[in-house]
Design a protein around this nucleic acid. Structure first.
Lengths: 334, 334
DNA sequence: AATCCATTTGCACGCGCGTGCAAAATTTGC
DNA sequence: GCAAATTTTGCACGCGCGTGCAAATGGATT
């Protein structure tokens, strides 16, 4: 099954007639080694089925090239997209990914501990439950030098945030909604625990208040889960008279928007966008489906992932926060 | 930032006034150690911020408690569900997950190599591109003892398959469709490369041929991607006269089914289930949404994940293949 | 042919922890 | 209170590779 026992660099060295260090060099991209030595080594390695042991390498060099990805919010389809992009870019650049499912809110600490034990070089957070106090508590046993919050802005010190500019983005959306002539917006927000949602919600509300002098209705959903979102929206709207209904639901993200659309159509008997328009955020694959054609906002995920790798490679320690600018994706839903 | 420099077990031992080996024992569940020694050690560790180094432990013990999860098929929402279940169960049992995005078909070998370098204890395949020849070629540099194909049956030797019984499942579906009175089924299959789809498709076709003496129409989609599925279904059905249309689309999985439903409704102007019924497979979250209410088949994922952990823990080497039985989830779409 | 410079190769030591067994400490039985 | 049974503790060696520098090799120049 496994090729022989444990073939080490020493074995390959003997087979190739060179020293072990030459073997090591042959396996590094940027090492100074003659072409023919490398060829000899590679052939010997191939013959023996040698595979370098990254555990030992990491132990000796104190760099693991491993990154922990902490995820909690598996109900949001956007997570799948993010995971794909991140792992793709990172793997191309030589970074491996340790996927840690943060089971529940109290599990953030243990999850970070888990990552520490593997001596990852960095931890990337793409969930939502990471309130600042939980993080602070978890800093304790921290054995990695970089804590990166991806696709979510964070003001926490010792933390690098790579995200879209929520304020800018939400202003764009608000302006678009405004320009389309909608006048009775209704904001569907995510869990209160997450700090990003505050930014989006407040930005929208502020905009509307300044522009039209009134505060839009608002509702909170306990998770970025379409089903939950639908339930909350139904409760909020079902008893309203037709004239009291909003003319557009501005949703904090696509997961919420999709749940809302389903409820509007199938529970409340309304047409989208005929009776009520809907906007989202993220541009998940479903947003482009025939059924939803959701007007939403696309984050420049590729750029953000590229920058993430830059951060990983960098030796710097501060001021690496960065905000990106995305763009509205205009479809039929609003 | 990181707590001090590298605190090792030696440091903790000194602090606690015991030997390093007592420290080691304190951190293992099943070690023979007195309660008060453990308490002393734990307090010292806490004071110093000590976190055991799993790289070193793994190197010394030749067990990594790390499992590589190879995924390629990120367009299928079901993958998110599987990843959540697997990582949840595995983490609870002390197994960490290395997520490897198999970038494309030719990348299977390099991806396996990647896992080998981390000396994972096992590799779990939950993608679809793993044809037997690619796998065979990749066996070469194999440094892990277990290759597990999850949620897909495989006859390959040296491979452990944990999956639902496709034949049984598809017979159940066929019988259901039959019993509901549908008479002009149309099968929507996934990529030809995957071996599981053959089983489902052939089982359905065989059933229909034996029961009704005729071979249902059939179409292949190049990936488990709703958008692609929709396109293929549209091409296949758009020129048919109303009377020639099938009365039920039996889809190899939910991703295909959802794409099909969208196309039926929004391109072909048909009602689902009014004009054409649809069945899926997997019971992804969307299947339960108001919009789809998809009749589908649920795999017992939790049971399967539990068994997976059993396999990981086991020292056995053969005959660990296992088929599970799921159940039809009956909703409105058929 | 002698010299110099650039390139290539070799190596001692340490990274942090597990394994298996023997010695020491503690408990039990009477 | 003593011997035997049991639990608890200590340790030498090795897991496989990187680091940084010194020695050696090869090629180019005069």
């Amino acid at each position: 099954m496994a090729t022989g026992a444990n073939i080490t660099a020493d074995d390959v060295a003997a087979e190739a007639g060179v020293s072990r260090w030459t073997v090591t060099r042959a396996f590094r991209k940027d090492a100074s080694i003659s072409a023919k030595s490398r060829a000899k080594v590679m052939q010997a390695a191939e013959r023996l089925g040698y595979v370098p042991d990254l555990r030992a390498a990491s132990l000796a060099s104190d760099r693991s090239n491993l990154v922990a990805l902490l995820v909690d919010d598996f109900a949001n389809p956007h997570k799948l997209v993010m995971m794909e992009r991140l792992t793709r870019v990172m793997r191309r650049k030589g970074w491996d990914t340790l996927l840690v499912n943060t089971l529940d809110k109290a599990d953030t600490g243990p999850a970070l501990l888990n990552a520490s034990q593997r001596r990852v070089d960095a931890v990337i957070l793409i969930g939502l439950q990471f309130d600042d106090d939980v993080l602070a508590a978890a800093q304790h046993a921290r054995r990695f030098s970089k804590l990166i919050v991806f696709a979510r802005s964070s003001q926490k010190p010792d933390t690098i945030s790579i995200a879209v500019d929520d304020v800018q983005a939400m202003r764009d959306i608000a302006a678009y909604v405004d320009a389309q002539g909608y006048r009775r917006p209704f904001f569907v927000a995510g869990p209160r625990t997450s700090s990003a949602h505050l930014l989006r919600k407040e930005t929208f509300i502020d905009y509307w208040q300044q522009t039209h002098g009134l505060r839009p209705d608002c509702v909170n959903v306990a998770a970025y889960d379409p089903a939950l979102s639908g339930a909350v929206v139904e409760t909020a709207l079902k008893d309203r008279a037709r004239a009291d209904l909003p003319d557009v639901l501005v949703c904090e993200n696509d997961a919420l928007a999709i749940g809302a659309i389903d409820t509007l159509r199938h529970r409340l008997g309304l047409r989208v966008p005929g009776d009520i328009a809907v906007t989202g955020f993220d541009d998940i694959p479903q947003a482009d489906s025939l059924n939803y054609q959701l007007t939403t906002y696309r984050q420049p995920l590729d750029e953000m992932a590229d920058y993430l790798v830059e951060v990983l490679d960098s030796r710097e320690d501060r001021d690496m926060n960065r905000l990106f600018r995305g763009a509205i994706v205009r479809r039929d839903s609003a």
